[in-house]
Design a protein around this nucleic acid. Sequence first.
DNA 1: CAATTATTGTGTAATTTGCACACATTGCTT
DNA 2: AAGCAATGTGTGCAAATTACACAATAATTG
Lengths: 270, 270
Amino acid sequence: MCKLHNNWYLYIMNKKADHLERLSDPSSYFPGISIDCVIIGFDKDQLHILLLKWKERELWMLPGGFVNLDEDMDQAATRILEERTGIMLPYLTQFHTFGDVNRRDKNLLAEFASMLDGASFTKLNDFLKQRFISTGYLSLVNIQTCKPTVDIMSDYSEWIPVNQIPSLLFDHAEIVGKALEQLKSRINYLPIGITLLPEKFTMKEFQTLYECILGKTLDRGNFQKKILKLGILDRYEKMLSGKAHKAPYLYAFNKKRYNELLEKGIGYMN
Amino acid sequence: MCKLHNNWYLYIMNKKADHLERLSDPSSYFPGISIDCVIIGFDKDQLHILLLKWKERELWMLPGGFVNLDEDMDQAATRILEERTGIMLPYLTQFHTFGDVNRRDKNLLAEFASMLDGASFTKLNDFLKQRFISTGYLSLVNIQTCKPTVDIMSDYSEWIPVNQIPSLLFDHAEIVGKALEQLKSRINYLPIGITLLPEKFTMKEFQTLYECILGKTLDRGNFQKKILKLGILDRYEKMLSGKAHKAPYLYAFNKKRYNELLEKGIGYMN
DNA sequence: CAATTATTGTGTAATTTGCACACATTGCTT
DNA sequence: AAGCAATGTGTGCAAATTACACAATAATTG
């Protein structure tokens, strides 16, 4: 896509203009369907979720949006995430569809309406009044290399540690919960380490990541032996130093080996 | 619900009338959303899927329908299955949402239209022309105690062995495939045996069921020992006889023990 | 009616894995 | 230089997995 736009700035501006246009006249959107993205990152012994703050209000939400009438839902998820955060992820995996009648609080909707009215978004306002079903999409990313930007709807976007998530719009807390549950139950089938860790990392970081997802502590010695035996890591002699005590080895993924195993499900832990 | 209708026949007729009314004027349906149910049974060493045949045509499909505007999707799944097959299942579990633009073949839709036109279903016809997203729901049932009936749209409903499934409407084959995949991957968390087998069964039947789901053979001796050790089965001295060779014991589930284990996931097989 | 046979129930031995903990190593701190 | 805290590795025991072998049984067969 870069090739079509040798001016990156123009490319972005085009996208933004298109987004804005559709919002002000949402007739090209599939009515009643939305998508919400749960983007999970890992930093400093904590899982983080990418959240957006609504303009001028202490109201947090997942990056979400609507499906174009001529667009597959999986494509829509990728587009929506890019529009709202600037993050381009070609593969997001669907994990659940939320279809309760009262999943969207009526009072909040009314507030939304009052905020939108002033800004010539009357059509969007009507569009939003109908009932919506939302499909949740999930992805895991390296928090360091993933710097979200902000769209017109939001003040700022932020990586929030899972234990510090504020109260969220509508049923977004439930959506996050379901995503974390999915992450845990599919831990052996998702590319956990390779997406959530930096290029090189210590064994301790890797273990902490697993402990966060599983919500329990693991035996250090056994974890290390199990992982090394799988052969998915290459060890680098260059050690991390500067901090107190014995310097640990740095490791990186042997991607070939890792992907081979991932197809059958890596039996890290039960 | 029985208590409200001491005349069962009347109750059914009311439901049918309501269904018919909504179909002839689909304005009370959520536009663009449908539900398809994959009901799985087991009989004679084969998994079976419950399919409906379209009136006067060799066209097979999953029992499906539309969501009322004032109805949670999970509720809708139960209602739809009952409307189309007479089977009442309070718990159906959602497994995937199918949202590709071209999931419904345009030619088939046109044929549908021609069939419906003659029968004063012009509004339904228009309703069906729009794009639809469909959410798949899954349930496991005992094929013996589950006798489907037929609704106005269908000639007959039938349990079809998974290896003999005919070509299906739209993307229903893909939906079935995804359901079977789900069944396999969640085998330790779904009430496999207790829903798919009759009250009493032999160890061989139980093993065959697992082999069908997993798509591989299991060692007989080890399977038997593993299951017995879990303590989820009660053995009955009354043996099955009449057939050649050694008569096997009959077993039934110890439901209390079974449900206890199921919550944590029963580690039958990996 | 005993021998046959296919199927069911159980046992065993070799191997692998899981688990808890101990010990050795290392590089910074004091 | 000694101490310390974290990393890397080893060891022993229990439990599980795996691949068979053997025994028991009831209808079939000659």
